[in-house]
Computed example of a mutant assay.
Amino acid sequence: MNTVKEQLHKSGYKLTPQREVTLSVLLENKSKHLSAEDIFQRVKEQYPEIGLATVYRTLELLYDLKIIDKANFGDGVSRYDFKQSGAKHYNHHLICVNCGKVIEVEDDLLYDVEKIVEHDYKFKVLNHRLTFHGVCRECQLKDESNE
C-alpha cells in the first residue's frame, strides 16, 4: 500500500479513502480477476456511500499509472489485477469455458516466438498476451463423475 501511495503522490494524486478501500479489495483478491462491478460490490460492503462511477474512475487512474492491469477475456468485461512487479509482460491466462475460472500462467511462454518476431520481422515487441480457452481440472472432474 505504501508503494502505491508513493506512486500516487509522485503523479500528483492523493490516497483518498475511496482509493484506499478499492486498493484493499484488489489486494484481498490478488489471485482473482475482478470486474469493476465485482470490485464495486466488495468496496460497497466496506464503504457503503461509494458510487460505481468512483470505483470506475479509481480503476482507470490505477491502470493509467500502471499500478494495475486491465484484461478483457473476450466477453466484453474488463477485469483488473495488480501488475506483477518487475515483469516485462502481462501474465498469460487459462479461461475455463464452463465455470469462467481464470488461471494465471506466470511463465513467459512466448519468449522464443518473441525473439523470432523481432529478428525476422524487425519488429520490436513491447508486450504480448496469450489466453487459452478450455476446461479447468475441477470441471473435468465434475464431468467425469457425471458420466
Rank of each mutant, 00 (worst) to 15 (best):
Q140F: 03
H89G: 01
V4L: 15
Y13V: 07
Y47T: 06
H133A: 11
N91I: 13
L62A: 02
S31T: 15
A71N: 08
I95K: 10
L52C: 00
R137E: 14
L62M: 14
F73Q: 02
I116M: 10
I67V: 12
V117S: 01
V77T: 13
H128S: 05
E6K: 12
V4P: 00
G51T: 14
L130F: 15
D107L: 12
K44C: 05
Y80Q: 02
N146T: 06
L94A: 06
I103C: 03
D107M: 10
K14Y: 08
G74N: 04
A53C: 02
E20C: 10
K44E: 08
P48Q: 05
T54E: 10
Y111M: 10
F132N: 06
H89M: 10
L62G: 03
S31P: 04
L59K: 00
R19W: 06
V135D: 03
V55Q: 01
Q140R: 07
R42C: 00
R42L: 14
K32D: 10
L61I: 13
S31A: 12
K66F: 07
H128R: 05
N91Y: 11
S24W: 04
S85G: 08
K66A: 00
Y80G: 02
R42V: 07
N91R: 15
V25K: 00
K124N: 11
Y47C: 04
Q140E: 07
D64H: 11
K101Y: 10
K122T: 10
I50E: 00
F132Q: 07
Y63P: 04
G51R: 14
S31H: 12
Q46C: 05
G12K: 04
E147M: 08
L94D: 01
S31R: 10
D108E: 15
I116R: 11
E104K: 07
Y13P: 06
L59T: 00
C99A: 03
G134F: 06
Q41T: 09
D38S: 09
L130W: 09
K30Y: 08
K10M: 12
G100S: 08
K101A: 07
V135C: 08
G12D: 01
K66P: 02
R19S: 04
Q18I: 11
E37L: 15
N91T: 13
E118M: 09
D143K: 15
Q140V: 11
C139F: 12
